[in-house]
Design a binder for these strands. Structure first.
Lengths: 117, 117
DNA sequence: TCGATAGTCCGACGTTCATCGGACTATCAT
DNA sequence: ATGATAGTCCGATGAACGTCGGACTATCGA
């Protein structure tokens, strides 16, 4: 059918509050860290999140709509990449500080086991 | 005269996600920026937020419980200060990047609107 | 003591959020 | 075509959030 094109906010419309909100979730932070460390575009399935498939889709959309990542269809997959250049220009140092931050072990213990489909 | 003491999370318990969430609100971001630029402790009333008094209290509490600010009673006032040392040690560069970020660039400079991955 | 000042606490209300299962669509390889 | 793979869309649900007014407490100065 139609080429499935995904909406991305132009760099000028990326808002700090939205970026911070997007980064303020453990699953999304994990995605961003993975993308930052891998340095390339990866499909959603490359990152094993502890949530269901629909929730995963939701988190990627939040990141894309906040301007944190790009998403491009490629075959049945969808490649996700960090918008590092845009973010580094708009908010210098932010991405690095978030990615490099050493996170303390969470007091909250039992991690929900991933639902079995 | 009960010494009204406020609970602050020890530095080891400050979690990045909570800090990001605390910073992801316009009112709270304004508070943090004010504190960062003033470089000293100021009472709540020093920052004129566009919300009610009870909402203001709420925002300061969120910041304190996330480990972003300190709050100390002094007379009828309550002095708020940035936990810059703790934050800079735990998440180097984060505070500076958030405080120095230029927010809301206008659309009149709209050139290329394609994301740069 | 009294008033003014500074902030807290307490419901309440509507919104947004993260999460899920399940049905669905799109693409590729065979 | 068929099946496998990858992700989307659609309600729904319960929790968290931002917001408010208003009554309340604590402190200070006159």
């Amino acid at each position: 059918m139609t080429a499935r094109v995904l909406e991305h906010p132009p760099a000028e419309e990326i808002r700090l509050e939205e970026v911070l909100h997007a980064l303020a979730d453990p699953a999304r932070l994990e995605i961003v860290r993975f993308l930052a460390s891998s340095g390339r575009e990866v499909p959603c399935s490359a990152i094993d999140l502890a949530v269901s498939k629909s929730t995963t889709t939701h988190h990627y959309r939040v990141l894309r709509e906040a301007g944190v990542i790009t998403q491009v269809y490629r075959g049945t997959a969808k490649l996700n990449g960090l918008r590092r250049a845009d973010l580094d220009r708009l908010f210098p140092g932010l991405l690095d500080s978030v990615v490099n931050a050493v996170t303390a072990p969470r007091a909250d213990t039992a991690r929900a086991s991933r639902p079995t489909p």
